[in-house]
Design a protein around this nucleic acid. Structure first.
Lengths: 334, 334
DNA sequence: GTGAAAGCGCTAACAA
DNA sequence: TTGTTAGCGCTTTCAC
């Protein structure tokens, strides 16, 4: 890479002249500016990012810590973050915590050495289970702002972008009740997560308030055979005529399994679940989905963090933004 | 963040003494080392990454350019890259080209300002269609090595990690022929990509060599209704008794659609396709899949790049690594 | 209108 | 054993 020094030498002017010329300083003569710019263009000069970062004590880089990149929702949020950050002139350094508390701590520590100006993250499953938050607080107190999305740690004072999980399942359940469903089951493989619990509560509340049935919940663990679990559940609970799925695969599998068992969807059983558009394609009939607007969540998180970074002096209060889900009807419900 | 300067001041020693002490230099007295380290620990000192990068003229950071983060395969490769890079002491800056040539150029340019030491990337669809490679060559000639994976630009001299796409479908097709399938179709929605073409050629060759049928190919475009396309294809070609899917969704949809049309899988029709483990769950019976070992591909790419970065002086020849696919049999084939 | 010098945080050659 | 100094590439204040 060409440096100011080299340009200066070749032009027989000082380094500072070159610097000022390239930054269109008023101080510099017109033809000098022209000469400098021409040579810079010729050599394809680009200011060294690292030197700039050191000088200005900011990197224009955001650390993003994602629990699981293979989760379609999280990947899509990352997509949103990347796009918005790029538009606003920031790069992102991505770490994958792999749902591990240790890796999460590690990543936070590793990047808190001047590599990034702040963080966007979703809390790892293990962290939520153990309810640890010290590492977040420490990072923030070091002057590195954090924006949490989706899975957040409520007792950490920082900006948050979340989904209306409770309302989403509450409304989804009510919508199945309006179809006159008498025995609606709730399926989840994210029962450990804050969002998973909220979704279950939304379902339960709707059932208790508006139905005569008891809540009926199937909790699938990561290591379970997902298909088998759902199949035996549906076999055992033959009167189930509605399903709310808290995660993106349970809904798909529920439809496929129901059909395999000879049920008609949605005539005999209605299925509704959190999922993305592309996943909903994997069932026939297509899954009626609760969409989380993942890209918008990512974009919001990036905006909020960058706004804070660029207005650090203002010391604004932390805020929580709620991105509303929407229900996209398809053929798996009436 | 605490700096050496502050530590030095508080300890009444020089900056270089502190630096050396922290680096366990032989030159420094034992008790000085101890005093320095204690204070450093107290203040939670961490060497400033940016300063180090500037000094040593390397960032220990890799630029990763992914065409589409929502593609499960690519996301998994990213996962592999991140893990391996982290293990080897590198960070990754992720850019998403979104299959756009412009964004790809943009990202390359943006990071070639000292932000990263090298690149790992998979070529964007538009880039492959237009067959542009100049931006890659320019980057490399600037001293930033590139490792390409999966979708590679053959006329760029750089390290590559690829899949045995041709062999994979050739063998898959032969395996269906061994089931005595008489009319095997090939379905793809990645016909624009180098890998998509290779996969089609593998299928075609196997058919031409070992079967009496003509090749039968269904090309689905991004904007098509995937389910509809496959449904009408299967309706029109009622004698199709085998399917090879080049991408990760066509196989799933083919199974679900066949069942919807009243066919028995695998009795009436066998389906086999590229897909990941989690996707294969979306069909019932589960899809027999061609696995690409995405994580291993990512890890290899990271290893190769980092090796090159740390042995730049050797100027080793570029190499191409082929990661063999494997066929995981499930219930969608005999 | 142009240049010299300081400084961001760090390392390392050299001096004491 | 410890300190001084230069320098990585850049911006910016202050002199000329």
């Amino acid at each position: 890479m060409v440096t100011l020094k080299q340009l200066a030498k070749e032009l027989n002017v000082s380094i500072s002249t070159v610097s000022k010329a390239l930054n269109n300083s008023e101080e510099i003569g017109e033809d000098t500016i022209k000469r400098v710019k021409e040579l810079a263009a010729l050599y394809n000069y680009k200011p060294n990012k690292v030197a700039l970062s050191l000088k200005q004590n900011k990197t224009k880089t955001i650390g993003v810590i994602i629990p699981n990149i293979l989760n379609h929702f999280l990947a899509k949020v990352l997509f949103g973050i990347e796009r918005e950050a790029t538009n606003l002139g920031y790069n992102i350094i991505t770490c994958i915590s792999n749902e591990s508390l240790d890796k999460e701590k590690q990543s936070l520590l590793l990047l808190a050495n001047g590599s990034v100006d702040g963080f966007i993250l979703s809390v790892a499953e293990e962290t939520q289970v153990k309810n640890e938050v010290e590492h977040f607080k420490r990072t923030i107190s070091q002057g590195l702002p954090i924006v949490m999305f989706d899975r957040v740690a409520h007792d950490v004072m920082c900006d948050k972008v979340i989904v209306d999980d409770f309302d989403a399942t509450y409304n989804a359940t009510k919508s199945l009740l309006e179809e006159q469903r008498k025995n609606i089951a709730f399926m989840t493989n994210i029962n450990n997560l804050s969002v998973g619990k909220l979704r279950e509560r939304g379902y339960t509340k709707a059932i208790l308030e508006h139905s005569k049935q008891d809540p009926l919940v199937l909790k699938v663990k990561k290591k379970d055979d997902h298909q088998k679990k759902i199949k035996s559940f549906l076999k055992k609970n033959k009167t189930v005529d509605g399903v709310i799925a808290a995660d993106s695969t349970s809904g798909i599998i529920a439809i496929n399994t129901a059909i395999n068992l000879g049920l008609k969807v949605p005539k005999d059983i209605s299925v509704m679940g959190f999922a993305s558009k592309s996943d909903s394609n994997h069932a026939l009939p297509r899954l009626t989905t609760i969409r989380q607007h993942a890209k918008a969540i990512g974009a919001s998180a990036a905006q909020i963090l960058i706004h804070r970074l660029e207005h650090m002096h203002l010391n604004e209060e932390v805020k929580t933004k709620i991105v509303k889900t929407s229900l996209v009807k398809s053929k798996s419900t009436l």
